[in-house]
């Protein structure tokens, strides 16, 4: 059995695949933003909320962190219609990813809140700062610096995670790779090219986020 790699036929699809990568980035971005909002409320509930709220959020986080995202989306897509909730595959994927991201981002942001030390606040108070000033000049910059690296890493991980949308027929990068494969049958070439695109996209994200973090927050970090 001999097989010669032939990229010629496949490279023509490069723009099509790159377009898919753009969709992957969009899905990751939407899910990330949604997850950030959930995570912000979740982290505040865990930090400042009462016991009941704490348990509720804790249960949500624990459940989503200990089950696969794929099966979560299966449940949303296939089981919710029984309860009268009909979603398109794109919606189901997006909701699943958002809920999943929300759990991880709750944990990340909670850790960020906890890293604000009391004595830092007290030091600011002795300088005569008002509460608003303290939040603005001490707390927020601190949280931004601490949170930026893990949030960036989560974003990159989520970009890779979007590939499972292909299973539900969403035509993002991996979905389009399946399409090209079905047309050309140059499987190895198609999927290496796809892998290459994921590498390029995440490397670019690492680079840009790293520069941004260093410039904006003087965050010293080793990104993904």
């Amino acid at each position: 059995m001999s097989y010669t790699l032939q990229f010629g036929q496949v490279t023509g699809y490069l723009p099509y695949l790159a377009g898919g990568a753009w969709i992957s980035l969009q899905i990751a971005f939407l899910a990330f933003c949604g997850g950030m909002v959930i995570g912000l409320f979740g982290a505040m509930a865990k930090t400042f909320g009462g016991r009941a709220l704490n348990h509720l959020v804790g249960g949500y986080v624990t459940f989503f962190m200990n089950t696969p995202q794929l099966v979560q989306i299966y449940f949303i897509y296939f089981a919710l219609p029984d309860a009268g909730i009909l979603l398109t595959s794109y919606e189901a994927v997006l909701i699943g990813m958002t809920l999943n991201a929300g759990a991880y981002l709750t944990e990340i942001q909670r850790a960020g809140f906890e890293s604000v030390h009391r004595n830092e606040m007290e030091a600011a108070e002795t300088l005569g700062m008002t509460l608003m000033q303290r939040v603005r000049y001490v707390v927020l910059p601190h949280i931004a610096r601490v949170l930026f690296p893990p949030l960036s890493n989560q974003y990159i991980l989520m970009t890779l995670g979007t590939s499972m949308a292909a299973i539900f027929g969403v035509e993002e990068l991996t979905g389009r790779a399946f399409n090209v494969n079905a047309e050309t049958f140059r499987s190895i070439e198609v999927f290496s090219l796809t892998a290459g695109l994921y590498i390029v996209v995440t490397l670019a994200a690492t680079l840009l986020l790293g520069l941004f973090g260093r410039f904006m927050f003087r965050a010293k970090m080793r990104l993904y």
Partner: peptide, 19 residues
């Protein structure tokens, strides 16, 4: 570390198929 698991699966799958 930068290739989604699904894509790695497909690559390995097809490499063995081709071989």
């Amino acid at each position: 570390r930068r290739i989604p698991f699904l894509v790695t699966l497909m690559m390995v799958f097809f490499v063995f198929q081709v071989l």
